[in-house]
Amino acid sequence: MFDSRSYEVRQRISIGNKYRIYEGDSPILESAQKKLRLKEDFRFTDPETGTERYRVKADSVLDIAAAYDIVDSQTGERVGAVKREAVSFFKHEYSLLGPDGDLVATIREDNVPLAIARRLLTTLIPFSYEIVTPEGDTVGEANGAFSLRDRYSIDLFDDALDPRLAVVGMVVIDAIEEN
């Protein structure tokens, strides 16, 4: 699990946000967002056994200022966190923080005109994000596909970023933005 540089996320048709994550053709994780919680709570489980693999919890009740901590449920290791940046309503931007809380990358929406069209005209325009290091190097991207439910690919270009942080982080972003 997480040995590749390419992943696909498919939102499942259901009440609430449920996802299945694929590495190649194999499902590696399933996720469901817990509803009616003061703080966001996501569990990522093994699709075959149902064993919890990762847990994501918001550190505060206010969504706008929340950081979402990602923890390996098997080892208790903190993988990192996803934090929303209050840059602009028109262009989503999130910080990926490493296990020690340092900024390791930023996930930002592709461009302002398309972002505005998504917000004001239609959500049928697929979302697209780039993943950039603090030094400005692009280390990955997430590209949506036209689909009834959210479906997108995540491609990492090198080993500069922990794939668990990028993939789990993108699912959290998709769920809280309700793309």
Rank of each mutant, 00 (worst) to 15 (best):
D46P: 01
Y94D: 02
I131V: 11
A117S: 09
R149E: 14
A142E: 03
T106K: 14
L121E: 10
A166W: 00
L148M: 13
R118L: 10
K83F: 09
D72F: 01
A160T: 11
E23T: 04
D46K: 04
K83T: 07
E109N: 05
D46T: 05
K35N: 12
R84V: 10
L114Q: 14
K57Y: 08
E177T: 13
E93N: 07
V56D: 00
I21M: 00
G101K: 10
S14C: 08
T123N: 15
R20P: 05
V139N: 04
E177R: 15
R55A: 06
R43W: 09
G136A: 12
V132Y: 01
E178M: 15
I173R: 02
E40T: 14
D46M: 03
D3E: 14
S73A: 11
I116P: 09
E40A: 12
L29P: 02
P126Q: 00
I64T: 13
L36F: 12
F89C: 08
T133W: 06
P163L: 02
I107Q: 12
G76T: 08
D159A: 08
A66M: 01
N17D: 15
D72W: 11
S147M: 07
A86W: 14
V61G: 03
E52K: 06
R55D: 00
D159M: 07
P27F: 01
A166D: 02
L103V: 06
A66P: 02
N17E: 13
G16P: 10
H92G: 15
A105G: 03
A67W: 12
D110L: 14
D155M: 06
P99C: 03
T45E: 14
G16Y: 00
V172D: 00
R119L: 09
F157R: 11
E30G: 08
L38H: 05
P47F: 02
V56Q: 00
L121A: 11
A115K: 07
S73M: 05
E48F: 13
K39H: 11
V104A: 10
D162W: 04
S4F: 06
P113S: 10
T45Q: 04
I64R: 10
S88Y: 08
M1E: 13
R108V: 15
E130T: 15
A142C: 09
K35G: 07
G80T: 09
A160P: 09
S153F: 06
L103C: 07
L156R: 02
A67F: 12
L62P: 07
G169L: 03
S26M: 12
D46E: 00
R53P: 06
E141H: 15
